[in-house]
Every structure is written in C-alpha cells, then in structure tokens.
Amino acid sequence: MIRLKINGTSRQYEGDPDMPLLWFLRDNLELTGTKYGCGMGLCGSCTVHVDGKAARACVTPMKSIEGKNVLTIEGLSAKGDHPLQRAWKQCAVAQCGYCQPGQIMQAASLLKEKPKPTDADIEAAMQGNICRCGTYERIRKAVKIAAGVQA
C-alpha cells in the first residue's frame, strides 16, 4: 500500500509499485490534465510537482513517492487564476493546448525557485517541455508577465 497526497487529498494505491504516477493520476483518479506525451521524460507534457518541485509523472514510479505531496494542474489554483494561468490566457499562448498543463506546471516550479527569472533562466527551465504547435515565444512572454518582469 502506497500512501500519498494529491492536490491536498490523501490517496492510496495498491498495485504494481513500478507503475508511473502518470497512470495513477489519469486512470485511477481521472485527473487527465496531466498528459502522456513520450513515456520517457523527454517532452514534459506530464509535468507535476512532487514536494514542490517539477517532476515528470511518466517516469516517476509509484514506489518512489510514498508519503509525498503531488500537485497537478487541477490543483494549481482553486479558480484557474494562478498568475501563470492568467498570463497564459492574456497572451493567448495555447494552440492545441495539449502540452500546456505541463508547460504551466514547469513554469510554476521555476517561479517558485526564481520569482524573477531571466531569459536564460526561462530557457533553461522550459527546454524540457516540447510544444509541437510552436508556442514557445508566447510561453516566454507569459512567464515574464506572471513574474512581473519586463516582457
């Protein structure tokens, strides 16, 4: 039995301890905001926070997160009004939208560590997150707006 907290709620899991967190979120809890994109930690679509830090849910086995706090896009803000979510809408970042929850979670983790990131900080933090529609320029702008640095 693995116990953990997801978006503040206690959850437990019995099953293959090697199963990645991604499928627990999606299949067991129906928290489908966390997306599958590669299964190898290469694209960032499944980014969540584990104990406050960005992690790729597709390569995070359930056995590694016993007792941890997981935050998903569904738990980022109560009303969808996290500064990043607002900035994302202000900049009309999303095209297809599939990778955007992962992008936002990655950016949220960046802003926790570096509330006033530089361009280089943003590029370093965000280059693990692929957007095939090509919204990178707007992502960079939205992160800066949310952080209140010159966009």
Binding site: T32, G33, E74, G80, K89, G97, Y98, Q100
Partner: peptide
C-alpha cells in the same frame, strides 16, 4: 477553450 486548457479540463482523445 482557453479556460479549460489552462486548468487541465480540456478533453482530448487520450482522455
């Protein structure tokens, strides 16, 4: 769909 997308509520084929 902007609100749904930034909150993870957008429903795709995989979902």
């Amino acid at each position: 769909d902007a609100d749904d997308i930034v909150t993870g509520k957008g429903q795709f084929g995989y979902d």
